[in-house]
């Protein structure tokens, strides 16, 4: 793999991180925030695989990538469970509504 391709993939990682960060700062909807988090974590997984490829340790990169994908899926499931419960109790998915919750 030539350095141009590696740089192209690295740019993809950085762009996906940028898109994810922008979404996190813009979105107020809980489900949308979980979707944006997924994009961010996919960028991280791509970065791990790319690092494995660059250091000729692609199997280590794959192992870490699998762990990240599992964690990412669980984050999505728990986030959606939270969003559904918030929607049922407060009638909205706006993150501002969470400030009305009292322990």
């Amino acid at each position: 793999m030539n350095p141009t391709t590696l740089k192209l993939c690295l740019m993809a990682v950085l762009s996906l991180v940028g898109i994810g960060l922008y979404g996190l700062m813009i979105c107020r909807n809980l489900i949308k925030m979980v979707i944006v988090l997924q994009i961010l974590v996919k960028a991280a997984a791509l970065g791990l695989i790319l690092a494995g490829q660059m250091s000729s340790q692609i199997n280590l990169g794959q192992s870490l990538g699998i762990t990240v994908i599992v964690a990412d899926t669980i984050v999505a499931v728990v986030g959606m469970a939270l969003a559904v419960q918030v929607q049922r109790r407060l009638g909205t998915l706006d993150v501002d509504a969470l400030s009305s919750l009292r322990g």
Binding site: P3, L6, M54, S55, S56
Partner: peptide, 14 residues
């Protein structure tokens, strides 16, 4: 990250 993207190391891996 960019300085690391220019080199590809070669090593054996399990």
């Amino acid at each position: 990250a960019l300085p690391f993207a220019t080199t590809v190391q070669h090593s054996t891996e399990p």
